[in-house]
Design a protein around this nucleic acid. Sequence first.
RNA 1: GCGUGGGUAGCUCAGCUGGUAGAGCAGUUGGCUUUUAACCAAUUGGUCCUGGGUUCGAAUCCCAGUCCACGUACCA
Length: 492
Amino acid sequence: MSENQEPHEPIAESELLQIRRDKLELLKEAGIDPFGQYFSTTHEISDLKSNFTEDSLVSVAGRITSRRDMGKSQFFDIANAHGRIQCYLNKKGVGDEAFDVFTKMLDIGDWVGVSGKTFTTKVGEPTINIETLTVLSKALRPLPDKFHGVVDREIKYRQRYLDLIANPESTKIFLQRCQIIAEIRRFLEARGFLEVETPMLQDVAGGAAAQPFETHHNALGMDMYLRIAPELFLKRLMVGGLTKIFELNRSFRNEGISRRHNPEFTMLEIYQACADFPAMADMVEEMICHLAENFCGGLQVEHHDEEGNTIRSINLQRPWKRRAYRDCIKEIDSDWFSYSPEQRRTRCQELGIEISEAMEDYEVTQQVFEKLVEEKTFDPCFVTHVPKELVPLAKQNAEDGSLVDVYELIINGQEISPGYSELNDPDAQRSRLKHQAGEETQKVDEDFLLALEYGMPPAGGVGIGIDRLVMMLTGAASIRDVVLFPQLKRRE
RNA sequence: GCGUGGGUAGCUCAGCUGGUAGAGCAGUUGGCUUUUAACCAAUUGGUCCUGGGUUCGAAUCCCAGUCCACGUACCA
């Protein structure tokens, strides 16, 4: 839209912006391209800093983030997300013209390329003594406060770039997220898993019980859904003989937004033929510990509040606890399973747990689990053998048909990962999907059931909510702090 | 959805029971050739979220809307 504006049309903007526009004109008048060109660098800022040697000729590029004007001597920092380096500009050293460009036409926020020799100042700061200064991009708006950063949550999320510029602790979390995701791919590839991509646009939104986003394909004249899970397509691939696979990508759920929920979220699903849920639990345990040790400072993960006080310490030391669902409930009330359904409802009121009339008996128990077990479990715990009604895609337990062979990995008061021994009996699968109880049910995908009839090997499967995993590993309090562009309401 | 709290300068914030809208940083001007939240001096900058109401007078009180946060429900 700015392209439609006449360059000299008066813009009703603050004086602050006008001053920057004036400097833009000064650059143009001096024959300098304010938006730069190719610039050859010898180092990344971060590498230069970590392997600093004096008196070497270097070229680096970055954004001016602060300046200290001492008259004929100018100190300033250039930085990007990975690092910061101090630059020194001396009027005699660079000549009057270049010096004027810096003092009269450049601001904090502008991108520059600098070339010069490295040295260390009196107080020990690694610095580049600038010989040539190249303008790479003029910033037409001022940056946020360098000391306080961006505190306003709305700016942080709507203008993430400002958060990244001003708040190193935010940048750190996103860099950790990148490393974690890259390492998950390496970890699985090293174990012979193949990364696949399955449809996000689906005819039937299956594989989970959640509201999907609806859309429409014009040429086909058909309504479609954004996937709520990739599961049913990954299982089709196992029917096709791809027996060690994973998908690490977005799913979409048209549900409420909260500290723990974003409508699009990143999910990892892993399937391994001829494995079962305990085998998958072992692998997940190994993987998460590997990630914590490599990118999060070890197996003791500390969470801090805004003031920096430690509010929680999560111990990821192996082996992780494994407990049957029923034993977890019995720890709350040892007689729970000898009560009648009515007694359980009464007991819920005593325990301060809200339940609705419409809830089935197993859902009442599940409420107890969620409020009194899950939300109070911070160190890792695999909760196994849950009631079969909760998980229609998992194999029934051989000894107790009311249970399924699954784990739910709880860490940090949240479910981080479910894992199943996957149900591969097509008739049992059909009947389980058709006889689901409760309010939220999974859609029946006939094409998936058809695939199962051709034979899917027994398999272990895992889902991991990557956003929540990153929250747990980095101590982020909100999913919005680990998703670069979280969903917000449109601003009119 | 519902409930509670919040929205004041580019950023971070103060502004009492209604009485001329404030500070720090950033910016501007001047000074200073090893500073680093540089420093010293001066100085500019406001749709107090939007709309309505009460009042002689509203950033402040009331109503509605809007966005954000937190809690809650659905959900992972």
